[in-house]
Amino acid sequence: MTTFVELLLGGLSMGAVYALIALGFVVIFKATEVVNFAHASLLLAGGYLTAVLHDDLGFWGALAVGIAGAAVVGAAVEFLVMRRYRGSDHSVLAIVTIGVDILLVTELTRRIGTRVLSPGDPWGDKVATFGPISLAHTRIAALLAAALLITAFLLAFRYTSWGVAMRAAAENPQTAALMGVRLGRVSLSAWAVAGALAAVAALFLTVFPTPGLERATSLAAMKAFPAAILGGLDSTTGALAGGLIVGVVESLATGYQGDLSFLGRGIGDLAPYLVMVAVLLIRPAGLFGTKETARV
């Protein structure tokens, strides 16, 4: 039972991190209808900046630069690439983001090389114990930070004029534009916000118990894709639920790997995808996604 609770809490904490990534993914999709396959590389960019700069700037300074840097990279992708596309087919734009992803990931993995970069976080490998349950400080920090950021984001999305503009643009771009919402700014800010959220997530993907930032970190970041999809691509609630589900499932599958040995080693990495496929079989638009309706 103790193990179960520990795994559950650890899973929730990882899930909150995945939710951060998925939230950015969903925000971009809502604002611009573009599926951003370059999201993992935004995350890698933020994580790389944090990890490289923490010696010079201290951890918090490096984190701030990492967040800002990832936001700038996201905005640059939007400004330099997405905005130049004149067609109307958004699935083609998804392929463009794959091209961008190839470029960014190649550059970043070349810089990272075979090194494993430590993010230089203050939590280290300390473990807190609550009765029989022990939990790493990093997991608690991840859970708190993610909860804080997600709440702030949702409040901003609901009450600030930026959030209203974003929701209006998602609802109906033409009308929003006629009402004075500047769509260019909306999509630019969506990409920047997504980059910033991804950079925070990058920090928590690379802290203890993982060894640090390495080439494979972008693979870990990809688990946010099933999170966003199984929640429903156009739903922020879905991103949260999807992230938590993915985190918990992964944590449990990894924790009980011994009992699941007939499925082979490393089933934990696969579990999120299997859950996603199962959900899509029953609900093709995800758990909270709006079913697509079309006027003919």
Binding site: A94, I229, G264, L270, L274, P284
Partner: peptide, 20 residues
């Protein structure tokens, strides 16, 4: 049943299943 990004990411699952 799926299309667009949904199918793209669902097929991404195939890669990971295959590797596994």
């Amino acid at each position: 049943r799926l299309r667009g990004a949904y199918l793209g990411i669902a097929t991404l699952a195939l890669i990971f299943i295959g590797q596994h």
